[in-house]
Design a binder for these strands. Sequence first.
DNA 1: GTGGCAGAATTGTCGGACAGTCCGATTATC
DNA 2: GATAATCGGACTGTCCGACAATTCTGCCAC
Lengths: 245, 245
Amino acid sequence: MRGVPVSDLFVPLDDHPAYRQIANLIEQRIVTRTLRPGDALPSETDLARQFGVNRSTIREAIRELEVHGLLGRERGEKRLRVTRPEPRRVSSGVSRALALNDVTFMELWEAMMAIEPAAAQYAALRRTAAQLQGLTRASVRFKREITDTDTAVAAVVEFFTAVAVASGNQVLALSQAPLNLLLVPTLTQVIDRVPQARARIQAAQDRIIEAIKLKKSDQARVWMEKHIRDFKRGYELEVPTEGTA
Amino acid sequence: MRGVPVSDLFVPLDDHPAYRQIANLIEQRIVTRTLRPGDALPSETDLARQFGVNRSTIREAIRELEVHGLLGRERGEKRLRVTRPEPRRVSSGVSRALALNDVTFMELWEAMMAIEPAAAQYAALRRTAAQLQGLTRASVRFKREITDTDTAVAAVVEFFTAVAVASGNQVLALSQAPLNLLLVPTLTQVIDRVPQARARIQAAQDRIIEAIKLKKSDQARVWMEKHIRDFKRGYELEVPTEGTA
DNA sequence: GTGGCAGAATTGTCGGACAGTCCGATTATC
DNA sequence: GATAATCGGACTGTCCGACAATTCTGCCAC
């Protein structure tokens, strides 16, 4: 490990391409609510004129904000408008980032142990009738699906998502969302290869739903904890070799 | 609230602009590791030729991947290369999304209560000497900074980040990162207006560091829990009006 | 008011162009 | 022989102009 070279004493001197500066400017106007969700953006030609750059440059800037979910358009609409970033869009980026960083199942599991029980607890406190119904729907879908593993896995994911949504906490929900995609590969293997997995998941879901239905938050947390612990057991049973999720 | 219109029964029929298709294609090659981190991408002209589109189109596609952190370039380098998405880049997007969705302090707090104690617990189990030093450095910085609130807040954030890093769990770290930016506004107010806040934070950090140093994971978790609870107390003391973080 | 229509406006994509800069190889210098 | 200066090519950032396809808008008829 070398010491700090002299050159590090000088300024970073990042380059600021115009398209990035413009993206930041527009982003700031959105974050500061100068531009509010629903507002239509000026046309590309207008923006180019206002910023004094070429339309191509504007387009590159717009791509950035579009990816971030700050801009978007309704189906079949032409004009861009300011949108509030949807959790799903953002969380998929997080999932991909984690997947590319070779997350292990243990890392995923520890995060689930931290987040899911908390989500269940708050869900029991605050769930609406509709959210409770959403939970039930997911569990029914899991029960019914006894042939296709992929659909069953999707139902499990739907269940976790429904719990997070029912927690009424956007931060928890957005923290939980990336875990779902990471869980899929492992969960698929477990359901495929551990015979008792389906029954155990069903039972766990039922207990959790019951607790959330009765607004027993402590129970909801405890059952969810056991449910997640069970996942690890299933994983250790049948996927003892590979470590990546 | 209208019912589901008939048109929703038909195909989504998303438009597929070429720049998006190309972005997806390149993304797939990265996710499937056909392109691996560190690999240099062909030049824009080459890509345009290979995909049979104009260079402008390629550039728009590239912007997307750049934002996702899948592509990037070394400082002062010209060639674009495949990079593994850094947590910081991704998490800032999550923070912005949450901020724009008017997250309340309670939502943030609940998420912190779920994640930070877990991070502290695992940090106590797995921290390296260097990571421990990073923790100490952050707390020293906080102790030393008694005038500038912003710097003090930054030190607190640094402390939390250091704990998350020391946990050795990328998922937890990436779940924790977005919370930091959300915490800043509230924490600034609390430190500014609650006299005893600084002392309490200092004491809490000391206890947490001690537990992590001695690898007492249960204690680390408990102290962190108390620390986070204290935040809520500070918040309720001096920010009883506003609800948004 | 509803429906339809022509024209204006806007997006997606293309081709080409040029300055500034980075890279690699070649040449000059010690 | 190793290091330094030089040079040409390649590449990016930005610009200009253009065109088809689609959406938007105001107007007219019913």
